[in-house]
Amino acid sequence: MERYNEVEAFIRSYLAPRFARGGISDPADDLSLIDSGVIDSFGLLELLSAAEAKFSVKVDLEEVDMDVVTTYGGFIRAIAGA
């Protein structure tokens, strides 16, 4: 749980300007980051690169369910569990 919280703090901070732009104060676990317009596919890949570098992990996008990993909670769990 500690790892999850640590990753969430990083992701929330990274996406803070984008959440602010979308009027999202408390993102739900199942918030679709792409469908909600918070970030586009390129932006999410950039975030993934940044998170991988920050936490020294590797996420194989070919092995994950894209519908899950593109949600707020799913993305955090993918990094925290990698």
């Binding site: 792409i34 596919s41 390129f42 890949l45 996008l61 894209m66 519908d67």
Partner: peptide, 25 residues
């Protein structure tokens, strides 16, 4: 779709694409 663009390898293989066209990004 936007999600499929994040991992096009799967899509290319599943759909057996023969021609790919995109921006270099």
């Amino acid at each position: 779709s936007a999600k499929e663009q994040m991992a096009p390898s799967k899509f290319i293989r599943a759909e057996e694409l023969t021609v790919w066209f995109s921006v270099p990004s």
